[in-house]
Protein backbone atom coordinates (compact mmCIF):
# COMPACT_ATOMS: atom_id res chain seq x y z
CA UNK A 1 0.00 0.00 0.00
CA UNK A 2 1.39 3.38 -0.94
CA UNK A 3 1.87 6.08 1.65
CA UNK A 4 -0.91 8.11 0.02
CA UNK A 5 -3.36 5.22 0.14
CA UNK A 6 -2.46 4.55 3.76
CA UNK A 7 -2.94 8.21 4.62
CA UNK A 8 -6.29 8.32 2.84
CA UNK A 9 -7.54 5.13 4.44
CA UNK A 10 -6.19 3.52 7.63
CA UNK A 11 -4.16 6.57 8.59
CA UNK A 12 -7.17 8.84 8.48
CA UNK A 13 -9.32 6.33 10.38
CA UNK A 14 -6.65 5.89 13.05
CA UNK A 15 -6.25 9.65 13.47
CA UNK A 16 -10.00 10.14 13.68
CA UNK A 17 -10.35 7.44 16.33
CA UNK A 18 -7.48 8.86 18.40
CA UNK A 19 -8.89 12.36 18.04
CA UNK A 20 -12.40 11.38 19.10
CA UNK A 21 -11.43 9.00 21.90
CA UNK A 22 -8.64 11.26 23.13
CA UNK A 23 -10.88 14.32 23.22
CA UNK A 24 -13.60 12.37 25.02
CA UNK A 25 -11.02 11.10 27.51
CA UNK A 26 -9.65 14.59 28.20
CA UNK A 27 -13.12 16.02 28.72
CA UNK A 28 -14.00 13.09 30.98
CA UNK A 29 -10.78 13.67 32.96
CA UNK A 30 -12.03 17.16 33.71
CA UNK A 31 -15.71 16.55 34.25
CA UNK A 32 -15.36 13.46 36.43
CA UNK A 33 -13.67 15.61 39.09
CA UNK A 34 -16.89 17.55 39.52
CA UNK A 35 -17.46 20.53 41.79
CA UNK A 36 -18.62 20.72 45.36
CA UNK A 37 -22.01 22.31 45.93
CA UNK A 38 -21.59 25.98 46.76
CA UNK A 39 -23.49 26.52 50.01
CA UNK A 40 -23.21 30.32 49.97
CA UNK A 41 -26.43 32.07 49.01
CA UNK A 42 -26.06 33.38 45.44
CA UNK A 43 -25.91 37.10 44.85
CA UNK A 44 -26.03 36.90 41.05
CA UNK A 45 -26.81 34.54 38.18
CA UNK A 46 -24.16 31.91 37.53
CA UNK A 47 -25.58 30.47 34.28
CA UNK A 48 -26.05 33.70 32.40
CA UNK A 49 -22.60 34.99 33.33
CA UNK A 50 -21.02 31.65 32.40
CA UNK A 51 -22.47 31.97 28.91
CA UNK A 52 -21.51 35.63 28.61
CA UNK A 53 -17.95 34.90 29.70
CA UNK A 54 -17.56 32.19 27.04
CA UNK A 55 -18.02 34.94 24.44
CA UNK A 56 -16.68 38.03 26.22
CA UNK A 57 -13.19 36.55 26.55
CA UNK A 58 -12.86 36.63 22.76
CA UNK A 59 -12.25 40.35 23.24
CA UNK A 60 -8.90 41.61 24.55
CA UNK A 61 -8.71 42.81 28.15
CA UNK A 62 -8.55 46.63 28.42
CA UNK A 63 -5.02 47.89 27.99
CA UNK A 64 -3.50 44.51 27.24
CA UNK A 65 -3.55 44.80 23.43
CA UNK A 66 -1.08 47.69 23.69
CA UNK A 67 1.09 45.81 26.18
CA UNK A 68 1.22 42.68 24.06
CA UNK A 69 0.31 43.58 20.46
CA UNK A 70 1.97 40.59 18.76
CA UNK A 71 0.14 38.04 20.91
CA UNK A 72 -3.20 39.74 20.30
CA UNK A 73 -2.88 40.60 16.60
CA UNK A 74 -1.05 37.36 15.83
CA UNK A 75 -3.54 35.37 17.87
CA UNK A 76 -6.55 36.81 16.08
CA UNK A 77 -5.02 36.41 12.59
CA UNK A 78 -3.84 32.88 13.34
CA UNK A 79 -7.12 31.61 14.81
CA UNK A 80 -9.38 33.27 12.23
CA UNK A 81 -7.03 32.35 9.37
CA UNK A 82 -6.92 28.72 10.44
CA UNK A 83 -10.71 28.58 10.60
CA UNK A 84 -11.05 30.13 7.12
CA UNK A 85 -8.55 27.71 5.60
CA UNK A 86 -10.08 24.64 7.24
CA UNK A 87 -13.71 25.35 6.45
CA UNK A 88 -13.39 27.76 3.51
CA UNK A 89 -11.36 25.69 1.05
CA UNK A 90 -13.43 23.64 -1.43
CA UNK A 91 -11.55 20.31 -1.14
CA UNK A 92 -11.71 20.54 2.67
CA UNK A 93 -15.47 21.02 2.46
CA UNK A 94 -15.72 17.89 0.32
CA UNK A 95 -13.69 15.86 2.86
CA UNK A 96 -15.84 17.20 5.67
CA UNK A 97 -18.93 16.17 3.70
CA UNK A 98 -20.31 19.70 3.65
CA UNK A 99 -20.09 20.33 -0.09
CA UNK A 100 -20.05 23.69 -1.83
CA UNK A 101 -17.41 25.46 -3.86
CA UNK A 102 -15.61 27.17 -1.06
CA UNK A 103 -13.65 30.40 -1.26
CA UNK A 104 -11.42 31.27 -4.25
CA UNK A 105 -8.10 29.42 -4.23
CA UNK A 106 -6.18 32.70 -4.44
CA UNK A 107 -7.88 33.98 -1.31
CA UNK A 108 -7.19 30.74 0.56
CA UNK A 109 -3.54 30.98 -0.55
CA UNK A 110 -3.30 34.50 0.83
CA UNK A 111 -4.99 33.59 4.10
CA UNK A 112 -2.69 30.58 4.48
CA UNK A 113 0.39 32.75 4.05
CA UNK A 114 -1.00 35.32 6.47
CA UNK A 115 -1.77 32.62 9.01
CA UNK A 116 1.73 31.17 8.73
CA UNK A 117 3.20 34.66 9.07
CA UNK A 118 1.13 35.21 12.22
CA UNK A 119 2.30 31.90 13.62
CA UNK A 120 5.90 32.81 12.87
CA UNK A 121 5.46 36.11 14.68
CA UNK A 122 3.93 34.30 17.66
CA UNK A 123 6.84 31.85 17.71
CA UNK A 124 9.33 34.71 17.55
CA UNK A 125 7.52 36.42 20.43
CA UNK A 126 7.65 33.21 22.44
CA UNK A 127 11.39 32.89 21.85
CA UNK A 128 12.15 36.54 22.50
CA UNK A 129 9.89 37.48 25.40
CA UNK A 130 11.40 36.49 28.78
CA UNK A 131 8.03 35.52 30.30
CA UNK A 132 6.93 33.40 27.36
CA UNK A 133 10.36 31.79 27.12
CA UNK A 134 10.28 30.93 30.83
CA UNK A 135 6.82 29.38 30.77
CA UNK A 136 7.28 27.51 27.48
CA UNK A 137 8.26 23.89 27.25
CA UNK A 138 8.69 21.30 24.49
CA UNK A 139 4.92 20.89 24.37
CA UNK A 140 4.45 24.51 23.38
CA UNK A 141 6.93 24.35 20.51
CA UNK A 142 5.65 20.91 19.49
CA UNK A 143 2.07 22.16 19.35
CA UNK A 144 3.24 25.04 17.16
CA UNK A 145 4.79 22.55 14.74
CA UNK A 146 1.70 20.35 14.72
CA UNK A 147 -0.41 23.27 13.45
CA UNK A 148 2.19 24.83 11.17
CA UNK A 149 2.98 21.68 9.19
CA UNK A 150 -0.53 21.13 7.76
CA UNK A 151 -0.61 24.78 6.70
CA UNK A 152 2.83 24.59 5.08
CA UNK A 153 2.23 21.28 3.30
CA UNK A 154 -1.20 22.49 2.18
CA UNK A 155 0.31 25.60 0.67
CA UNK A 156 3.00 23.56 -1.13
CA UNK A 157 0.38 21.12 -2.36
CA UNK A 158 -1.96 23.70 -3.82
CA UNK A 159 0.93 25.47 -5.53
CA UNK A 160 2.71 22.24 -6.60
CA UNK A 161 6.02 23.35 -5.09
CA UNK A 162 9.06 21.18 -4.24
CA UNK A 163 7.49 17.76 -4.80
CA UNK A 164 5.02 16.13 -7.19
CA UNK A 165 1.33 16.15 -6.32
CA UNK A 166 0.97 12.68 -4.83
CA UNK A 167 3.83 12.78 -2.30
CA UNK A 168 2.76 16.30 -1.31
CA UNK A 169 -0.82 15.17 -0.82
CA UNK A 170 0.40 12.24 1.28
CA UNK A 171 2.55 14.59 3.39
CA UNK A 172 -0.31 17.03 3.81
CA UNK A 173 -2.75 14.31 4.86
CA UNK A 174 -0.22 12.79 7.24
CA UNK A 175 0.53 16.16 8.85
CA UNK A 176 -3.19 16.75 9.37
CA UNK A 177 -3.61 13.26 10.79
CA UNK A 178 -0.70 13.65 13.19
CA UNK A 179 -2.18 16.94 14.38
CA UNK A 180 -5.62 15.40 14.83
CA UNK A 181 -4.25 12.35 16.63
CA UNK A 182 -2.15 14.41 19.04
CA UNK A 183 -4.54 17.34 19.54
CA UNK A 184 -6.26 15.88 22.62
CA UNK A 185 -2.93 15.16 24.30
CA UNK A 186 -1.37 18.58 23.79
CA UNK A 187 -2.34 22.13 24.68
CA UNK A 188 -4.29 22.17 21.41
CA UNK A 189 -7.09 20.57 23.42
CA UNK A 190 -7.92 24.11 24.53
CA UNK A 191 -9.94 24.22 21.30
CA UNK A 192 -12.57 22.36 23.35
CA UNK A 193 -11.72 22.98 26.98
CA UNK A 194 -11.72 26.78 26.71
CA UNK A 195 -15.51 26.64 26.76
CA UNK A 196 -15.40 24.82 30.11
CA UNK A 197 -12.72 27.13 31.54
CA UNK A 198 -14.54 30.31 30.58
CA UNK A 199 -17.84 28.83 31.66
CA UNK A 200 -16.57 27.86 35.11
CA UNK A 201 -14.88 31.24 35.62
CA UNK A 202 -18.09 33.01 34.60
CA UNK A 203 -20.27 30.83 36.80
CA UNK A 204 -18.05 31.24 39.87
CA UNK A 205 -17.91 35.02 39.51
CA UNK A 206 -21.55 35.28 38.42
CA UNK A 207 -22.80 33.59 41.57
CA UNK A 208 -21.02 36.26 43.60
CA UNK A 209 -22.25 39.08 41.42
CA UNK A 210 -18.58 39.72 40.64
CA UNK A 211 -16.81 40.50 37.38
CA UNK A 212 -15.57 37.88 34.91
Amino acid sequence: MSLLLWAKGPGFALAAVLFLLGTAMRLAEILRLGRGTDLARPRGAAGGQALRTVFSRFLPAPGLFARSPVVHAGGYVFHIGLLVVVIGYGPHLAVLGIGGRGLPAGLIDGVTLLTMAAMTALLAARLRDPVKRLISGPGDYGAWGLVFLPLATGFLLVNRVLLPFEPLLALHLLSVEVMLALLPFTKLVHAFTFVLARGYAGAIAGRKGAHS
Binding site: R32, R35, K132, Y200
Partner: peptide, 16 residues
Protein backbone atom coordinates in the same frame (compact mmCIF):
# COMPACT_ATOMS: atom_id res chain seq x y z
CA UNK B 1 -11.72 19.86 40.89
CA UNK B 2 -13.30 20.20 37.47
CA UNK B 3 -12.75 23.98 37.19
CA UNK B 4 -9.06 23.60 38.08
CA UNK B 5 -8.65 20.78 35.56
CA UNK B 6 -10.45 22.83 32.90
CA UNK B 7 -8.25 25.84 33.62
CA UNK B 8 -4.98 23.91 33.52
CA UNK B 9 -6.05 21.97 30.40
CA UNK B 10 -6.82 25.24 28.63
CA UNK B 11 -3.67 27.24 29.34
CA UNK B 12 -1.84 28.01 26.09
CA UNK B 13 1.15 29.70 27.78
CA UNK B 14 0.40 33.01 26.10
CA UNK B 15 1.86 34.92 29.05
CA UNK B 16 -0.87 37.56 29.06
Amino acid sequence: DAPVAAFLSSCVRCGL
